[in-house]
Amino acid sequence: MDEKEKSPVGFLLLIPALMVLLLLYMYPLIRAIALSFTDEMGNFTLANYNKSFDLYARDILYTLGITLVTVGVTFVISILIASYLRFKQWKFLDYMYRLPLFIPFLIVGHAMRIFLAQHGTMNSLLTRIFRIEELPGYSGLWVGLVATFVWVMVPFSTLIILGAFKALDDSYIEAAQNLGSSKWRIIKDILIPLARPSIMVAMVLTFVRTISSITIPLMVGPNNPNMITVDMMFRVNYFSDWRVANALGVISYLIVMVLAIYYLRFMVTERGGLKR
């Protein structure tokens, strides 16, 4: 037994995965952090961070805001679709909600830009059908950006949540219904609490995918304020300023890390609280 544990084969099998992790994740991360704390001479400095906050404080808050609103709206829509499909069979919706999964960000961005523009598809439909005044174009506004993000994020998060809902035994739902619970109360009291771990996963993934997206804010978002990813690209493309770009990158890392810690702590208490 001891011999087996000391055998190097296990470690050897792990090496490819470990190398990928070290080369493609740890090394760039450490390099980015290092670069963000040095000046051109290679000396330690906080100047990159000062510059980041001076120039982009508003953009950082804006990014955080857009991401949180996206997560919130995605949560509501995903719960609604997943609940509907948990209670009722509707093949059409079941296929339709997944469709955006298979459409590349670039195409979504372009489609949304046309759809949401002042004289775009949405407005021309609205004015023709409801005979109302043309709404302002939402492409280039934060509303348009959030709408596009939600369109992209909902399928994946619904997929995860619906999976969790469907895994719950019917009798949990029927027992609540039997005692007089409406569908809304069942969603709130039974479905959401019992599927909480999966919902958390869906929301964390939505958060990370939104905050790290560049194509969509570049195509649909306003020119000012911008999302951090766009600022990073500008720093590199127009100023060749890798140091501030890296500082901004580290800042987004930290934001995601706060979430990751919160999530891990939740998972630990959840596992510890339930005897499984």
């Binding site: 035994d169 609540a176 039974i190």
Partner: peptide, 10 residues
């Protein structure tokens, strides 16, 4: 009120 065979306690 229905009693479920698997109890269905939440």
């Amino acid at each position: 009120s229905m009693f479920f065979q698997n109890y269905a306690l939440w």
